[in-house]
Design a protein around this nucleic acid. Structure first.
Lengths: 341, 341
DNA sequence: CTGAAAGCGCTTACAG
DNA sequence: CTGAAAGCGCTTACAG
């Protein structure tokens, strides 16, 4: 039988309360007593039942997820997953509140974070915006012992305890590697559609992409970056005019959003050979384009995994428990037409 | 405040025991009483605290994982993950026993399954072997209410409650799709190295591979399958002689194990242009070959995810709870040199 | 068919 | 600094 606190108490000749004090590192125990109890703990191989402890404490967790608004398909999916998770969490004494913030609005985000100092949730997950005011707000929460996890977009240099998202440098490198292989031995140009070079994710993807393409596939040259602001209409215009202007475009990497416009622009082409296209995030648009052959590959991050992971990590941090690192690593999914889920 | 059984009892004017009977669908409650309690439950929006219930029941889970022996890198990784999971499980009142069985030995596997009828674990996970005796043994356990989950290799037609593994047809299709794109427009042969055509996984991968290659990439023709029995030495010999015999081999798909031999055979070639190579499972060998450029892509299933998923599913089934389907879907990972974990 | 009481493994005031 | 008792939200004999 697994030993319980009663067994420890009996073995050490102390009361339950004292065992509990030692177990939880609470003050007010004489050194000799503490040692005695600790010896019993290791002698009997005691491991605390966390669920029972949480029940006794009436422990419940309260987390806040701060998600950007906007009609971006990916962010919508992230929000839907967050709402499902919130629903399931109720059964495990965990309450999850979803807070909206305007996308890329560092000031508002920081203000929301500061506002949480009063509510004192057990943890916060946020899609970070790269800004010193946000980092400072995260650090203030950290001071108070409120753990912050960055979601999708990281904020290095802040005191966030974990990042639940993909490695964007690796994503860019992977895109280049795939595109280079798809275009094996051909000579020509590659267009890149980004959202904005002000966003770290996009900069990192571009950096990884450029590095691999330039060193490993020197026959392919990257055209000036198209900044589509993640807007379908603008993306369509930019891609269309690029396709018109440069007749030797062999490949296209879309590292941001707005892929509806990109698909329209490519589909509108009446002539020319197949262009190899790699985009990010599996949405209805990209799924259909993958099936129809307009897009060759989709790099994806699983919003469900990101949300579940963020919550698991926050829960673990709240109780100072270990996480299973491999389980929390967010994969870069590569989808072809043939392995769509 | 979240309502508890006490609140339900008070609201319905009955005792805790009766609430419990209704909650757990136990007999011996008059219909009127049952209705009264159920009304209170929905009126107060009661949801049962599963952890508290498990504590009260002194509920503990006992699962058996049946894993094939052999020095296959993938199976070793699976076993290592199982042992880690067993370690972690102790903290959650779950005991996991790992049982060895000779690989591909249907009779022994069935005997082990039958032997479990006495032990009566709460659930069993096994790497299935395609055989009627195994299916029958799984069904006998199912009759007794012992849930079986197939791991890595499925057994259709049996009463297993879940399959924790990849879609092997999709894996084969993906391999063909990648290889076809890597070899864009070229005309030549593709070699396929399998373990054995007697194993369902391998047959399915080949089926998916052939289907896509034949329909979408007609310039590539598949050479007669090399059966390497998952043994490095034999694989090396077969690949070497195939490379010697067929001078127009452009690509190679290894859908089984024994990749150490394959890498040696390819590395030994002194002449000829780059051959595009796609293999299964990320191991030390394939990781290094990916880095050095001998291999172009690795299709992988995450053994850690498979083990954790099997255990989560068994736990859920043991208590008749829902699983989060998306979380339990085992992805087909595609690794290039650029997105290695 | 129904209920009062004890218990699962821990924690928390409170008293000393 | 230490302990006895009650309690977290459920379930389980046992009695009626």
């Amino acid at each position: 039988m697994k030993p319980t606190v009663h067994d420890i108490a009996a073995h050490a000749g102390v009361s339950l309360a004292t065992v509990d004090r030692v177990l939880n590192d609470r003050p007010g125990v004489r050194e000799v007593t503490r040692v005695k109890v600790e010896e019993s703990i290791s002698a009997l191989g005691f491991v605390r039942d966390v669920n029972a402890a949480n029940l006794a404490k009436s422990r419940s967790y309260s987390f806040v997820l701060i998600l950007p608004t906007g009609n971006n398909s990916f962010m919508e999916a992230l929000r839907a997953e967050a709402m499902e998770a919130a629903q399931r969490a109720k059964f495990e004494r965990t309450s999850i509140r979803i807070v909206d913030v305007r996308a890329f609005d560092a000031k508002s985000l920081a203000a929301i974070l500061d506002g949480l100092a009063e509510e004192r949730p057990d943890g916060v997950a946020l899609v970070a915006v790269e800004s010193p005011v946000v980092a400072a707000a995260i650090d203030r929460l950290a001071e108070q012992g409120i753990a912050c996890v960055t979601l999708v977009s990281d904020l290095l240099g802040s005191k966030r305890v974990h990042y639940a998202g993909i490695d964007n440098l690796a994503a860019g490198r992977t895109a280049a590697s795939l595109l280079g292989r798809f275009l094996r031995d051909r000579r020509g140009s590659v267009a890149v559609l980004a959202g904005s070079m002000l966003v770290r994710d996009h900069r990192e993807r571009l950096e990884g992409f450029s590095a691999v393409l330039n060193t490993e596939f020197p026959k392919l040259n990257i055209l000036p970056i198209l900044e589509g602001w993640d807007e379908p209409e603008r993306a369509e215009r930019m891609v269309s005019s690029a396709l018109g202007e440069h007749r030797n475009i062999l490949g296209l990497y879309s590292l941001g959003a707005g892929n509806r416009g990109l698909v329209r622009a490519i589909s509108a082409r009446s002539e020319g050979e197949h262009i190899s296209v790699i985009v990010h995030e599996l949405t209805n648009t990209t799924r259909e384009a993958l099936k129809s052959g307009v897009i060759d590959a989709v790099l994806n991050q699983d919003p469900g995994h990101e949300i579940r992971s963020a919550i698991r990590v926050l829960t673990a941090k709240a109780d100072n428990l270990q996480i299973v690192a491999a389980q929390e690593r967010i994969r870069l999914d590569i989808f072809l037409r043939d392995n769509l889920p």
